[in-house]
């Protein structure tokens, strides 16, 4: 049984044209590092929060989310508290916003153990000191007495990580843990996270928009677009041979970490908002391989292609052509310069 398992999770806000999450299924095994990649608004943060039973206010939910066997959709307060205090915890994007600015770091680190864990202040503080050392902070006793505004962003994110580990969870959810930090601190934070995850054999779900970071950190990757999983596979396989045009687009729009610099190609258009919906593939408007009559009929289902699963009507076809990254461009020259293709995309994105 996987540590974390989503089965056709459906989350919708009343009055919106499309659901936030539409049939999301994914799993994280014990000790496994998995990434969920997507643009802002794709639903990846909502997915991660669902693993703690945190759903948007007033949302309608369907499907299942299980952490260590405990069902979270429609769970009662006691179940939620049990999962949140002993099974899963989350590292949020912006530690400056995520840690109460008027309380001391020590309070942040010990409150969970003292208030719900039933430990004494001394026990909780000993645990906090141990964790502050484990996340690589230089002077734990002093940090315990500091306020958040007296620490740098990178140090605070380490505090956030320590806070997530206090209750010894089995599953760590990281929602863009390095996005709010300096580039130089990002690598340190990621390696700290990875080390702790390996040492304790934790399951890790990393939410990020950075496909390269995901591939460098995780074993498996899920790519999300407009509330659906559009491709999943092993990190190496996905990076070497993306099968979905969106995955290929993401890869093509970021500079390679090694090898010669090539011209970056942005994914045209903007992600679909909750006020928009499409009868067929949600990515069709932005896809350079879109085929009218096929892609706009019904949403594609995830189907095995190569080593992974892909939700694209033309996946087989494109794979035969060498994959969407290298397949001959249906429109030449460059897409952005072609009004005939660029215009409908923006028009339909009203």
């Amino acid at each position: 049984m996987p540590l974390l398992e989503y089965e056709a999770l459906h989350v919708a806000l009343p009055g919106m044209a499309r659901p936030i999450l539409d049939g999301v299924s994914l799993s994280v095994a014990e000790g496994e590092a998995v990434a969920l990649v997507g643009e802002s608004g794709s639903g990846k943060s909502v997915t991660a929060r669902a693993a703690l039973g945190l759903f948007p206010d007033g949302a309608e939910t369907g499907g299942q989310v299980r952490v260590d066997g405990a069902e979270l959709v429609g769970a009662d307060a006691a179940t939620l508290r049990a999962v949140r205090t002993s099974k899963a915890s989350m590292i949020f994007q912006d530690p400056r916003a995520g840690i109460n600015p008027v309380r001391r770091i020590g309070d942040f680190l010990t409150e969970q153990l003292r208030l719900v864990g039933g430990r004494s202040r001394a026990e909780a503080e000993a645990r906090a000191l141990e964790l502050l050392g484990a996340v690589g902070l230089p002077d734990p006793p002093r940090h315990l007495r500091q306020y958040p505004h007296q620490m740098s962003g990178g140090m605070l994110q380490r505090v956030m990580i320590a806070g997530a580990l206090t209750a010894e969870p089995r599953l760590l959810l990281c929602d863009e843990p390095t996005t709010a930090l300096d580039v130089t601190t990002q690598a340190e934070i990621m390696s700290t996270l990875r080390r702790l995850q390996r040492d304790d054999g934790l399951g890790l779900l990393l939410i990020t928009h950075d496909l390269d970071l995901a591939a460098a950190t995780c074993d498996r990757i899920y790519v999300m677009y407009a509330g659906r999983i559009v491709e999943t596979g092993t990190a190496a396989g996905l990076l070497a041979a993306p099968r979905h045009p969106y995955t290929a687009g993401l890869l093509g729009s970021s500079p390679p970490l090694d090898g010669p610099l090539t011209r970056l190609v942005p994914v045209p258009g903007t992600p679909m908002s909750l006020a928009e919906s499409a009868p067929g593939c949600a990515f069709a408007d932005r896809c350079r391989f879109v085929r009218p009559g096929l892609c706009d009929q019904a949403p594609p289902a995830l189907a095995p292609v190569g080593t992974g699963l892909v939700a694209c009507h033309r996946a087989e076809e494109l794979t035969a052509l060498g994959g969407p990254a290298t397949a001959p461009d249906p429109a030449t020259p460059a897409l952005a310069a072609t009004p005939a293709l660029a215009a409908p995309a923006t028009e339909e994105n009203r």
Partner: peptide
């Protein structure tokens, strides 16, 4: 939200 996510009542 962080505090709630940590299981505090």
């Amino acid at each position: 939200e962080v505090a709630l996510s940590r299981g505090l009542p």
